[in-house]
Design a protein around this nucleic acid. Structure first.
Lengths: 307, 307
DNA sequence: CTCCATCTTTGCCAAATGCGCAAAGCCGTT
DNA sequence: AACGGCTTTGCGCATTTGGCAAAGATGGAG
């Protein structure tokens, strides 16, 4: 075909129509409006007919554009399905797998899992994005992201890697020195370790809220954006921390940190977990292998679980 | 989809399988084997599985490759058909139309036709390749080529623009000075005008062959690769020329050149013509417009026809 | 009516990509 | 063993792509 980039530009065109603007499509794709405009110009030039009638506030399709839009989605779906079908072959795993997750989880569990996968599949390469942000697999062209906590509704497909709980914990010598709180209200008299710029799914507000009445939170004397640092601060006796069990579960098991199960921990009443999220319905062979390795590394029940 | 170039590389993959080698696919596409290899590498990397088992003599597909090959052709056909369907909308003609033809034909008939088309469609742009070569529309990414004479079988789709004949002609004063040959054999005693590096479909050998026995060809005293120059040489009385009627038809009509219909011109026994050839089954809107303009410029019967 | 926010467009330029070239090595045939 | 034609890959260069910034358009809010 004369225009090898036809399918590529077609997908851009569909995004423009769906989003209603070049700017919207650009945000969706992580590109500037000028880049989008140029790709649509290339498509129109290749076809020799205009597809869109533009103004700065309204974008409408021509007859040709409407016809193309009708035809485009099934075509793009078939391309996507075919890509996924072939990518699911696992005779010989190669290529790049891109994953985003929280830094602490990544260092603790993902890297060990991936070490093993790469040993077994030398031609596989990994790009691991350790970030506190909620990465978007579609926008950032990731194969998967690991999300922790409760999931917001989205078009992403989730598979559960493990359960998780959030634990109130302190070191034994902190408790010996400052007393052991018996209720959530008593936390007001204690020194707390807080997350500096945490994601929405973590934070003391859950403890305050589920204990009833006004949040009874004491002063945060140590704030940091890194789970690992918070764990070390807790072990050092700086204060009481509120952390996921995958961060401190093994310290609790070892007696280095003491769990404070105040009021039966209502913040764990609803199920919560560690999830692997992907955009495509059909998992690629790489994703299945990485998923399996993660589950094996995490264990069943997870290695961080406290009785 | 993660790989925007998937469809593009898919088409390359299909060519590689069809041609049986990277080198063959490269020749088909006008690219070097290294460029083809890289595109296949990109495809395999994107899919994460090998598609081809390579050696320097044999290229075989893996299971994944076979499956992809099965799926690819219908997909690529649908893309091509969709492109063609949309390109056939002629609400507003724009884009580039690429055409190749012989220089003399181009200057005499194509440029006047295209002048008119571009006046009517200001957003249309034309790339006109005036060449003595037989241009390949697929390889050179042309919308169409004009071929003259009898057509070799090919996958190209031909529509006839006009009939053509080849004529033996000389100027009146050449004939007055050198005598008028009555048979093909008598040409041996005359001075001839020949084409320097002509294409297969033109040349004195046809005159010699159809007149029976050994070719009775006189000395070529003027050789040139340009039809227009040959026409001017004939008018100047340099010798006898053997040219298509679209080159010298109007000179014969005006009496400036005399047609020599030796032995009922057996070289015109089989039909011959001027053809517009394209690669795609469905003509684009641009092609229809250019085709119509060419027919109108050439006329019915052609303006060059001699009674 | 004015202002503002957000859009599209386009020239310019930097960054990224793709490809040709050339060389090395492989492989089947002669 | 030699040869022809293949694949592969490093390198350099040309081309393409896309971000930036500025200009102008447009609808809604005040």
């Amino acid at each position: 075909m004369k225009d090898p980039r036809f399918a590529e530009h077609l997908a851009v065109f569909v995004d423009v129509v769906r989003q209603g603007s070049f700017s919207g499509a650009g945000r969706r794709r992580g590109q500037t409006p000028s880049a989008i405009v140029r790709q649509i110009d290339a498509l129109e030039h290749s076809l020799g007919v205009p597809l869109l009638i533009r103004s700065t506030r309204a974008l409408t399709m021509t007859d040709a554009g409407e016809r193309l839009f009708e035809r485009a989605q099934p075509l793009l779906d078939q391309l996507t399905d075919t890509h996924a079908e072939i990518a699911a072959f696992d005779g010989a795993i190669a290529g790049t797998f891109r994953l985003a997750c929280f830094p602490t989880f990544g260092k603790r569990y993902v890297i060990p899992a991936i070490e093993r996968v790469m040993a077994e599949h030398p031609r596989l390469t990994i790009e691991l994005d350790l970030t506190e942000r909620l990465a978007d697999p579609v926008l950032e062209r990731l194969d998967a992201v690991i999300r922790i906590g409760r999931l917001a509704d989205s078009t992403l497909i989730a598979s559960k890697l493990a359960d998780q709980c959030r634990l109130l914990i302190a070191s034994p010598h902190y408790l010996a020195r400052s007393g052991r709180p018996g209720t959530a209200a008593e936390l007001a008299e204690h020194r707390l370790i807080d997350k500096l710029h945490g994601a929405d799914l973590l934070g003391w507000s859950d403890v305050g809220r589920t204990a009833g009445g006004a949040a009874a939170i004491g002063p945060a004397v140590f704030r940091c954006d890194d789970f690992e640092a918070m764990r070390l601060a807790a072990r050092a006796g700086i204060g009481i921390a509120f952390l996921p069990d995958w961060v401190i579960g093994t310290d609790v098991q070892a007696g280095e940190l003491i769990r404070l199960p105040l009021e039966d921990e209502p913040w764990n009443a609803e199920p919560s977990g560690v999830w692997l999220l992907r955009a495509l319905a059909q998992p690629s062979a790489r994703l299945r292998i990485v998923s399996t390795a993660l589950r094996e590394t995490i264990g069943t029940p997870p290695v961080w679980t406290c009785g």
